[in-house]
Simulated scan of single mutants.
Amino acid sequence: MSHSALSTSAVWSRWLTVGTVLATGGHLFGVPALSSSLALVIVGLGLIAGVPHGAVDHLMATRLARGRSLTAVVAAYAGVAAVAWVLLRWAGPAALVAVVTLSAVHFGLGELEVSRRLTGWRPGRLTAAATVVAGSGALALPLARSGEQFSAVAAAVSPGLARLLAAAPLPVGITVAWLACAAVAITAALRDGHGVVALDIALIGALGFLAPPLVAFAVWFGGWHALRHSARLLTVEPGCAALLADGHRRAAVHRLARLAALPSLAVLTAIGALAWFTLASPEPTEAVAEALRVLLALTVPHMVVVLWLDRSSDVEREPLPIGGSGYRAVRRS
């Protein structure tokens, strides 16, 4: 049942990606491109849809930090996010580049874990590393392409980043590195008989290359990464896992949604409040930039918790409540 939930989410994410590529990549063949306002609406919806997948980190961290109270864990989590936001706001492009790089690794590791759970594929270190890089394509390729809208948002987040992205060597290097790693990962997956892994990498590449950069990332974040991550969470939260085992998938989804509801609302409220108080103008690109800054800040403690759980699952064999990528404590179907 747990494998079925992940498989279903994977199918939905693929169809959503195909639909996005067809709807937004038609400009290459003479079909009118998306308007700027519609593209930003899609971006906003994608970012909002991605928020809940990390909204239960506090439960995961509390279980890992045995003996620590939920209040202390939440305070530490919020503190790390606040420090990251301050650095992203005032420390220049260096902090942003560091967080984006770590995010790409986090996203790629998540893709590797999904491929393991769906197919049982355990590639060697070189192929695994290539798969991680290939799995981050929906972030790396939009960065490399840096369309006009993306550049405007990047400039709003950090003017130095926009200048860095405008330098030709960086986009070319990112694109070449992704293509090389994707070729290695796809070849290895096909050789080992795991065509679905190759398909996912190809779809990530198509989205990253063909859709408008901001749309590509937002759709992937909310409709691919978050969707698949949430399906994995169903298998490791005790209540959800029990419901799945009894065949009550809808009830398991509802339970996870209830657990994530208040934290998600808090994050969305914070984004709205920051946009309200810090934006000098009602420009939509600046609003998107503020939302991205907050989400990136929240990604820092999220990555820490996921890595913590990954390391803990190496030595523990009992399922933990709420998990991220690489949860070897959970039996693979």
Rank of each mutant, 00 (worst) to 15 (best):
T8D: 03
T278H: 06
E286N: 08
L34N: 07
L28E: 04
G124S: 02
T24N: 00
L233F: 01
S9L: 08
R163S: 13
G323C: 09
P282S: 06
T24R: 03
V315P: 03
S2L: 08
A252S: 04
P171L: 03
R68Y: 14
A76Y: 09
P32G: 00
I201K: 06
V288K: 00
P171W: 12
A140I: 15
L256R: 07
G137V: 09
F277H: 07
P263S: 09
L199P: 03
L256Y: 15
C181Y: 00
L139V: 14
G50I: 04
A297T: 09
Y77T: 03
L309H: 12
L6F: 01
P282I: 05
A154C: 06
R311K: 06
H254G: 14
V18I: 15
H248Q: 15
A144L: 07
S35C: 02
E316T: 15
L307W: 13
G326N: 13
L47T: 00
W178E: 06
A129N: 08
A129K: 05
G223H: 08
A206T: 01
V74W: 08
Q149D: 13
I201T: 14
F107T: 12
A182G: 04
T8M: 01
A104L: 07
L139S: 07
I186S: 10
A95D: 08
A168W: 11
P142S: 09
L320I: 10
R317E: 14
S136Y: 07
L295V: 04
L214P: 07
G46W: 05
L207G: 04
W12Q: 01
W224R: 15
A155V: 00
L40E: 02
G222F: 10
L47H: 04
G46N: 02
